[in-house]
Amino acid sequence: MKFFSKHKNILIILSFALFLRLSLSFFGTLQLDQGTFVSWSMELARNGFKDFYKGWSDYLPGYLYFLWGLGKINLLNIFPQVFLYKIPAILSDVVTGYVIYEILKKQKSERWGILGAIIYIFNPAIIANSTFWGQVDSLTALASVTAIYFLDSKYIFSAAILAFGTLIKPQVAFILPVILMMMLKNKWGLLKATKYLLTGLFVFILGFIPFTQGNLPQ
């Protein structure tokens, strides 16, 4: 309860943003893209990972893990597909808004944090991309800001998030120069920086293994 009372303002804003997105999620769907996601997810849910890339796919493994989970849920016929397959992007929008709030609150003030979160989560382009079109860019945005947020406090986790985000879309790797600049600014030692880079490389490689060596449990 202390957390909710302390963060009441931002939680109200994020709750409204979530409600707005869920209400609009049945509209504006890019049928071709969502149809592809549904097809991939059902293939993954039914047959696992090992032989997936024998068919056509232009996605790295990162988002395919989400599609595997969505496919398992879709088999239960609980949620409409048009709603279900937008949930990861919608939730990512909201969490990204919160991370932006925390970053700016730490660097500036709570007022700046709230303003930054509002600018992001109510940006029409952000809403269109996740809520209407059902694209995955919200997940990569979340990975990028989360990697920055945890760089000082939990740098191994930051490296893992950055690597997994790159497994979703390679564009996440473009945040690496910012990470390196922050390392220099905070006077990281060579050993710590090497651990960060090797952790990221390990997670990135690990993401491919189920697609080459075997399947996760069915």
Results as ranks from 00 to 15, higher is better:
Thr166Gly: 00
Phe79Leu: 14
Ile127Trp: 04
Lys72Asp: 00
Ala193Val: 05
Leu20Gly: 09
Val38Pro: 01
Ile119Cys: 14
Tyr155Lys: 11
Leu190Arg: 13
Leu11Thr: 03
Ser41His: 01
Phe132Glu: 04
Gly97Lys: 04
Tyr149Asp: 08
Phe174Ile: 10
Met1Val: 10
Leu32Gly: 12
Ala89Cys: 07
Met1Asn: 11
Gly113Thr: 12
Val82Phe: 11
Leu167Cys: 03
Leu115Pro: 10
Asp137Arg: 02
Val172Asn: 01
Asp137Asn: 10
Val82Asp: 14
Ala141Val: 08
Lys185Ala: 15
Leu91Asn: 00
Tyr98Trp: 10
Leu142Pro: 01
Gly48Pro: 02
Val38Asp: 01
Ser57Gln: 05
Leu84Arg: 01
Thr131Ala: 08
Ser39Phe: 14
Lys2Val: 13
Lys105Trp: 13
Phe4Ile: 12
Val145Lys: 01
Leu20Asn: 10
Ser15Asn: 06
Ala141Ile: 04
Ile205Ala: 13
Gly165Ser: 02
Pro80His: 12
Leu139Tyr: 01
Lys192Thr: 09
Glu43Met: 04
Ile10Met: 07
Ala117Pro: 01
Leu24Glu: 10
Ile156Trp: 09
Thr146Gln: 04
Ala159Met: 06
Phe49Ser: 06
Pro210Glu: 09
Ser15Leu: 11
Leu75Val: 09
Thr96Val: 06
Ile118Glu: 10
Tyr149Trp: 12
Lys8Thr: 08
Ile209Phe: 13
Ile127His: 05
Phe49Arg: 00
Asn186Leu: 10
Leu201Asn: 02
Phe122Cys: 09
Asn9Ala: 13
Ile175Glu: 02
Pro210Cys: 10
Leu14Ala: 07
Ala143Val: 03
Ile73Cys: 07
Asn47Gln: 08
Thr96Ala: 11
Asn9Phe: 09
Ala193Glu: 09
Leu24Tyr: 07
Trp40Ala: 08
Thr212Trp: 10
Lys50Leu: 11
Arg111Phe: 15
Asn47Val: 01
Arg46Leu: 09
Leu191Asp: 07
Leu24Phe: 09
Asn74Phe: 06
Leu18Met: 09
Phe79Ile: 15
Ala160Val: 10
Leu167Glu: 00
Trp133Thr: 11
Lys86Met: 07
Lys86Pro: 05
Lys86His: 13
Leu30Phe: 13
Lys192Gly: 05
Pro61Gln: 02
Trp133Met: 13
Lys2Thr: 14
Trp68Tyr: 15
Asp152Thr: 13
Leu60Lys: 00
Asn129Ala: 11
Phe66Met: 00
Leu64Phe: 05
Lys8Gln: 07
Met183Leu: 11
Leu190Met: 12
Leu22Asn: 09
Leu91Arg: 02
Asn47Thr: 06
Leu18Phe: 09
Ile126Phe: 03
Ile90Asp: 03
Arg111Lys: 15
Ile118His: 06
Ile205Ser: 10
Trp133Gly: 07
Ser39Asn: 15
Asp58Phe: 08
Leu76Phe: 14
Phe19Ser: 15
Asn123Trp: 06
Leu197Ser: 10
Ala17Gln: 08
Ala45Cys: 03
Thr194Leu: 15
Phe27Pro: 01
Asn9Gln: 12
Phe79Met: 13
Ala163Tyr: 00
Ala141Thr: 08
Gln107Met: 14
Asp152Asn: 15
Phe37Asp: 03
Leu32Asp: 12
